[in-house]
Amino acid sequence: MARDFQLDLPIDCVLGETCYIQNYVDHDPSEAASDFQCGALSYDTHNGTDFGLHSLADMDAGVDVLASASGTVRGVRNDMRDVIYTPDLAGEINGRDCGNGVVIAHGDGWETQYCHMKEGSVVVQTGDIVETGDILGEVGLSGRTQFPHVHIVVRRDGNMVDPFDPDGQITCNEPSDVTLWHLPLDTPLGGLITTGFADKVPEYLDVKAGTAAASELSANAPIVLWAFAFGARPGDLLHIAIDGPDGPLFETDDVLDRQQALFMRAGGLNAPDAGWQSGIYTGVVIHSRDGIELDRQTATVTLP
């Protein structure tokens, strides 16, 4: 199956650096959810793969959605506004959960659908012929979504196919090496999205917006290191440490107590009476599970 039809990334980004995979296809037939690795990066009845941006600021700057394979555009929607979904918007969405999007027919029963694109950004029309990598529009926040991403659905003869496990024969801890992706994709079980410094614990909405990080702090203000991450499971460990010009200043280990798709943690110190020493301060955040490091990020800030 994978040899007959292959996909490129549906988004113009560097996976693991400027974007990440938030959710996969749900393979659990019950009301629970399980991804192709028997992990928790999915939710009940989720029928696609979510390639997410780090922040709303990245979305505003513009990130292209790309055709994953060549084909003919079968349908387009381009007029829904970009807004974080809340239950009071159900009437406005009225079943159009995909938001703005594009459907492409590829032949031999294959079809891809691209959802949650930015209002007014779609540049193709029904009937257009597209090649692999052609720009379809931009990543947005339309439809039923709470973070900027492109949700790609793959179907054959009307049936949903998981591009990471097209035969659907799940073996826990041994994911299939036969996929629909033209090149192998890294699929971490969780990790860090962004990390930064601030003079207080930032508001979660500011972290999601991409406006929480400070490039410079005051000598008399608190120094706080925060982390925005995905794929939390109970028992995961988030290690947060800050080093100043003369060495270690702060260190803590936060044991996570519940499963969360997206989450934020922070730690830091109030300024000493004499104020912070001028120089460069470095923060390190490490996300671990069962003693294995999933991800780490480093941030720096300057104190004048």
Results as ranks from 00 to 15, higher is better:
residue 281 Y to I: 05
residue 189 L to H: 15
residue 173 N to W: 10
residue 235 G to W: 12
residue 21 I to P: 09
residue 299 A to V: 00
residue 282 T to K: 05
residue 293 E to A: 15
residue 87 P to F: 07
residue 225 L to D: 04
residue 158 G to D: 05
residue 287 H to W: 04
residue 222 P to M: 08
residue 24 Y to M: 09
residue 219 A to R: 03
residue 190 G to L: 02
residue 27 H to Q: 09
residue 199 D to R: 13
residue 241 A to T: 02
residue 189 L to F: 14
residue 81 R to L: 01
residue 37 Q to G: 02
residue 300 T to I: 08
residue 266 A to K: 08
residue 50 D to C: 06
residue 281 Y to G: 11
residue 140 G to E: 01
residue 166 P to N: 00
residue 58 D to F: 01
residue 117 M to H: 04
residue 267 G to P: 07
residue 94 N to F: 10
residue 34 S to H: 02
residue 155 R to T: 08
residue 24 Y to D: 08
residue 295 D to H: 04
residue 82 D to W: 02
residue 267 G to R: 07
residue 6 Q to C: 15
residue 222 P to F: 06
residue 32 A to V: 10
residue 204 Y to L: 13
residue 172 C to T: 00
residue 126 T to Q: 08
residue 214 A to N: 11
residue 52 G to D: 08
residue 39 G to K: 07
residue 249 L to I: 14
residue 40 A to S: 05
residue 74 R to Y: 09
residue 180 L to T: 08
residue 111 E to P: 01
residue 229 A to C: 00
residue 125 Q to S: 12
residue 226 W to H: 05
residue 75 G to Y: 08
residue 273 D to R: 07
residue 78 N to D: 06
residue 208 K to N: 11
residue 156 R to D: 08
residue 160 M to G: 12
residue 277 Q to V: 08
residue 249 L to S: 02
residue 86 T to N: 10
residue 149 H to R: 02
residue 243 D to C: 11
residue 186 D to Q: 15
residue 8 D to I: 11
residue 70 S to Y: 08
residue 260 Q to Y: 13
residue 156 R to E: 11
residue 278 S to G: 05
residue 248 P to G: 01
